[in-house]
Amino acid sequence: MDYKAKEKVYEKILLISAFISVITVVLIGGFIFTEGLPIIKKVGLIDFLLGKEWYPTKDVFGILPMIVGTFAVTFGALILGVPLGVATAIFLAEFAPPRVSKFVRPAVELLAGIPSVVYGLFGMVIVNELLMHIERTYLANILRPEYQRGYSVLSASIILAIMILPTVINISEDAIRSVPHEYKEASLALGATDWQTIYKVIIPAASSGIIAAVVLGMGRALGETMAVIMVAGNTVAIPDSIFAPVRTLTGNIAIEMGYAAGDHVKALFATGIVLFVIIMVLNTVASFLGKRGAGQS
């Protein structure tokens, strides 16, 4: 084979490797939709999405409790994690002396590297025990007995908040750092203090990047499975309190896939479709925000 033909072959091989990601996304979509759509048709989209009952053995498939559960723990995680994450990002980008950031940055990196099951174990043993103690000591008269076991929306939110910290910190920090120096210098030259500069100039300029960080953190929280199963209690019921045990969409799949059969398996794939669609919408929003942020600076 002459070298020109060889070059062509290499280029083709590389092109195929590059397309594997695209092919995989299509395959993932294809498989979960073919496996899951029939049951959605059978149950009816509205009944599937808004049904409050989930009795797989009686062919009753409604996933509203899991949808509400997923969003409850996700928003809980954002409420707890975003302020801390963004503040840490501002600290790292604007205030931290090199000696300190040399310490904080590897910590954030390590936080990102800890496997989710380890967070789950920590949550089970520390967060849940602590919550249970608080619930039984101070809230025993107010809460139902099922709500006094620690396994709850709150504990899942706490663990997820820790898990999304690295995403929120890293992307917000990048956004803050990409604000042109002139903005900051001009503001300081006008006599503004560091803090005035940060919240009147830098944060507004970095806002689309920070929002993208929050959206990506949200994606991470929505998709997390193992840690949530280990701390949330997994009861199928719409949570009516932050102390209520809760089951998420991801948890629903992971817990029941092991023993499901027939239509039950299809219903779990259908749960996957809902998750897939939510994540795709979220990613589109994030990449749109990312592009807008990049266009501004």
């Binding site: 990601s21 998709g223 794939f269 994540i279 990449s287």
Partner: peptide, 25 residues
């Protein structure tokens, strides 16, 4: 653009959905 879209989309998919795909495929 198509390849980048694919790679980004893949990065965002939750691992349990990969699990469903891996199971079916």
């Amino acid at each position: 653009r198509l390849i980048r879209f694919g790679t980004e989309a893949l990065a965002g998919i939750p691992s349990i959905v990969f699990g469903l795909f891996g199971f079916a495929f």
